[in-house]
Design a protein around this nucleic acid. Structure first.
Length: 855
RNA sequence: GCGGACGUGAUGGAAUGGUAGACAUAUCGGACUUAAAAUCCGAAGGCCUUGUGCCGUGUGGGUUCGAGUCCCACCGUCCGCACCA
């Protein structure tokens, strides 16, 4: 009998699938469509276990849908623009394009042996001009519709690399790559008008029933809706009023100062004649923007000398301060300070000797605030002091609502709903990204490039010489000729925009492009109309906000520009966020007691401890952490596939842990998975060759188990319960191995087992399907259906509880009525003994489940 | 600080409010073998007074005939957001 040889089997069946083109998706009205998508990868050059887990999950869904009669679209591509390519260019002197395309080729070679049911005929790479020219075309459409615009904005600027950095690229106030102190600099940048969609993006979250609640909540918080009021404060010097935004106008009685942002127009005006203030503003510019730094940063301010009138008590005058803690891009850039009910304002007030006055007390505790601001939960009742809105003892929330109405009624303020969500700055001073297709003309200003001139393609050399990436700054800026062009409007010599787009733009519409990846327009509305939406999207939780929010915005913007049908404005019907693959870290200590990390393959067990293979030195084991090259706790999928085969890797990453949680990769676990698949191979091969006679009782028992397994595994596969489905398959394999059933029943069971396993272990399943003499491919065979009649045994075992504690069991026919079950239970010896003469008060019979006798 | 999730054997984890610990790992025992590997069979939450016993799903309360599951409080861990007025 042949042994299980994964290498042989897997190559053979992958070739068979390719030849039959079973994964090629074509539009068809015969079957319901199903679009399953895993978040596409960045082509770093190596696949990792996280990829294996992600694509295997998608593959299980895709293959199951294929077997249940769906027309499945399961495409694959590359999120290919990005900083890493430019870093490689700097470090290794290789052109970003060459590096990226080589990585794509390498990763493809590592991906293929996994046997994922991707339709490779739809492969796309975002760095290819055939992709980004459509992105440029859409940019122009967005521009026309006012969905993208240019404005001055304060950004993180790395003075050494001479580029804008995203917030997450600023670590402890320093550029993550250069280590230079990041400055806040005002630049003219392109922005997508995502803030116009704040309410809609928030509202529509409610309809995303098949998204994790966690992701919806994160987006809700990110959008950050708040209801408040804008109140103008009249200036005593007769200048135009300063308008403050507040969500707590109920605390107005305690207002003791107004604070404005250093970037507020009033601050800027004053700074022109006030060197001290000008210096203060310059200093705040340089301030760190990181959370930790902001937390520690001192609240500082400067008195402007201006005073304003209290809007409710005109006799009260409030000083206006410039505060380094006031944000210009939220609200109006001006706030009133109420030290009694805001800790930050209190700290500020104490520092600069400003008044502290309560607006309310807690019921029965009439004490003035001293060192701790009084901020009870909004649902708690407080006692408002001589309140202008005519309220006394109500909850803070009621106080807020009443006050907003009061101000609005009196015409003293305007109710305002604000969102934290800000417009999406897409300009990057980078080479390896999609060029922004506009031209700067001295006479016409900023002019969109003509569509027929697209793509605006990246230059691949400097007029014959390789582009110099080592010099900091954007190579596009210093390219000798690339910028030169004719103004699309007047024809005069003009200069191209050298900023490129944030790579999140590339990934905000690729799912739509997959529906017609070779179309001459960004999308083909017939194809998009047929395939959209993505029925199941799968990826990491790390994209919960950025990518998934940007894509929701993009789908709306694309719809406005006629690139997507209306039904696709929420592009992902169902979302699943999978956990990571983790691994223990093996480390030793150097002479300075610093950790030295070791790869798992350099470590082995000896005498009950883990030791370095080379020296025998014992290693410390640090509990499981996300696989990371720097900690060396990585396992290369390529090695695993070589050693055990793809099916083993696939089986293992799905077993053991629920898919939304992290799974720890262990050598023992991988080996166990391999042993199990070998066992299935052996058992099924034996069955294929067996001719033992029928055994009525054992045959029925086996087939009953088979139908239960069909039911459970199908349920597991359809609800992301892959680990539970696999547990059922283990159990059924054990049942099959021990069964005394005849060859015919065993063959039927084996065929079903192989089929149920096929989404997880498609190669092994194809092999055994053929061993069992089945026609065609298991991949395209119809998924088995459970026979309801076989799911319940003729007699069932019911536990009997007395006062909720299990005391006995009875065997009863499955359809015995309640009264008879009760009678049977009460006449059971163990029950009689346990009752010890006591009279049951009540007997609860849950048919088919349990009996509870209450005494 | 605000918001959220999760706490079950040695370990990963099962369990529509209905027999807690399925399935797997590690462990132990047995069979086969000259031996090993492979394979097969079996044991295994804790406690004692070994009983058809008691206790047991982070802690304490509650709802229920019945709670790992629902509710409240606390403890712990993890995640997201945060000078957002």
């Amino acid at each position: 009998m042949s042994r299980y040889s994964a290498a042989e089997i897997e190559a053979k069946w992958q070739e068979a699938w390719d030849k039959a083109e079973v994964f090629r998706a074509e539009r068809s009205q015969d079957k319901p469509k199903y679009y399953v998508l895993e978040m596409f990868p960045y082509p770093s050059g190596r696949i990792h276990m996280g990829h294996v887990r992600n694509y295997t999950m998608g593959d299980v869904i895709a293959r199951h849908k294929l077997a249940t009669g769906h027309n499945v679209l399961h495409p694959f591509g590359w999120d290919a623009f990005g900083l890493a390519a430019e870093n490689a260019a700097i470090e290794k002197g290789v052109h970003p394009a060459k590096w990226t395309y080589q990585n794509i080729a390498d990763m493809k070679e590592q991906m293929k042996p996994l046997g994922i049911s991707h339709d490779w005929s739809r492969e796309i790479a975002t760095c290819h001009p055939e992709y980004y020219r459509h992105q440029q075309a859409m940019f122009l459409d967005f521009l026309e519709k006012g969905l993208v615009y240019r404005k001055n904005a304060v950004v993180n600027w790395d003075p050494v690399d001479m580029t804008v950095l995203a917030n997450e690229q600023v670590i402890d106030g320093k550029g993550w790559r250069s280590g230079a102190e990041v400055e806040r600099r005002e630049l003219t940048q392109w922005f997508f008008k995502i803030s116009d969609f704040s309410e809609e993006l928030l509202e529509a979250l409610g309809g995303l029933d098949n998204w994790p609640a966690k992701v919806r909540l994160m987006q809700e918080n990110w959008i950050g809706k708040s209801r408040g009021i804008e109140i103008p404060f009249e200036r005593m010097d007769g200048q135009p009023p300063i308008t403050c935004y507040s969500t707590r106008p109920d605390t107005m009685r305690g207002a003791s100062f107004v604070a404005i942002s250093p970037e507020h127009p009033v601050s800027r005006d004053l700074a022109l004649n006030n060197p001290e203030l000008a210096a203060f503003i310059a200093e705040t510019r340089k301030m760190d923007t990181t959370e930790a730094a902001l937390e520690k940063a001192e609240k500082k301010g400067i008195d402007t000398g201006i005073t304003v009138r209290h809007p409710v008590w005109p006799e009260v005058e409030l000083p206006v301060w410039v505060g380094n803690f006031v944000l210009m891009d939220y609200g109006t850039g001006a706030v009133f300070g109420c030290p009694a009910h805001d800790q930050r304002d209190l700290d500020f007030a104490r520092k600069y000797g400003l008044d502290v006055r309560n607006a309310f007390y807690l019921p029965g505790e009439e004490v003035e605030v001293q060192d701790t601001a009084l901020v009870p939960p909004k649902s708690e009742k407080v006692v408002y002091i001589d309140h202008f809105a005519g309220i006394a003892e109500v909850t803070s929330q009621e106080g807020i609502d009443a006050t907003i109405d009061w101000f609005a009624d009196k015409g003293l303020g305007t109710e305002q709903v604000k969102y934290r969500l800000r417009d999406w700055g897409l300009s990057r001073q980078r080479y390896w990204g999609c060029p922004i297709p506009v031209v700067h003309c001295e006479t016409c200003g900023v002019v969109p490039e003509k569509k027929e001139n697209l793509p605006v393609e990246l230059p691949y050399d400097e007029d014959g010489k390789p582009i110099d990436f080592a010099t900091p700054g954007n190579p596009l800026d210093r390219h000798p000729t690339w910028r030169d062009c004719a103004c699309p409007k007047c024809g005069a010599p003009a200069k191209r925009e050298t900023d490129t787009m944030d790579t999140f733009v590339d990934s905000s519409w690729y799912f739509a492009r997959f529906t017609a990846p070779r179309a001459e327009t960004p999308t083909d509305m017939v194809e998009a109309g047929y395939w959209m939406n993505v029925d199941q999207y799968i990826g990491g939780i790390e994209h919960a906000i950025l990518h998934l929010l940007y894509s929701r915005f993009f789908a709306r913007a694309m719809h406005i520009c006629g690139h997507l049908p209306e039904k696709a404005i929420e592009p992902f019907d169902a979302l699943f966020t999978q956990g990571m693959v983790t691994h223990a870290i093996y480390q030793t200590r150097d002479d300075k007691n610093r950790a030295v990390y070791h790869f798992p393959e350099d470590v082995e067990e000896a005498d009950g401890t883990m030791r370095l293979k080379a020296t025998g030195e014992a290693v410390e084991i640090v509990p499981s952490a996300k696989m990371s090259k720097s900690k060396k706790n990585v396992v290369d999928p390529v090695n695993i596939i070589r050693e055990f085969g793809a099916d083993t890797a696939r089986w293992f990453v799905l077993s053991d842990s629920p898919p939304e949680r992290d799974v720890e990769w262990t050598a023992a676990g991988a080996e166990a998975a391999f042993k199990h698949l070998s066992r299935v191979h052996r058992i099924v091969t034996e069955i294929a060759e067996s001719d033992s006679p029928a055994n009525a009782e054992a045959d029925t028992a086996l087939l009953r188990e088979m139908h239960k397994t069909i039911h459970d595994v199908t349920g597991g596969v359809e609800s992301f319960g892959f680990n539970a489905a696999i547990a059922k398959l283990y159990a059924f394999t054990n049942t099959l191995a021990r069964s005394q059933a005849g060859a015919e029943a065993k063959r039927e069971a084996a065929v079903t087992l192989v089929q149920l396993m096929s989404p997880m272990t498609p190669h092994l399943s194809e092999e055994l399907w053929s061993t069992l003499g089945q026609e065609g491919l298991v991949t395209t065979a119809k998924w088995p259906e459970a026979d309801d009649a076989m799911l319940v045994n003729d007699t069932i075992t019911m536990p009997i509880q007395i006062n909720g504690k299990r005391r006995a069991e009875i065997e009863v026919p499955k359809d015995m009525d309640k009264a008879e079950v009760e009678k049977a239970a009460l006449s059971n010896d163990a029950v009689i003994r346990s009752l010890d003469g006591a009279q049951p008060k009540k007997v609860i019979v849950v048919p088919g489940r349990i009996v509870n006798v209450v005494v």
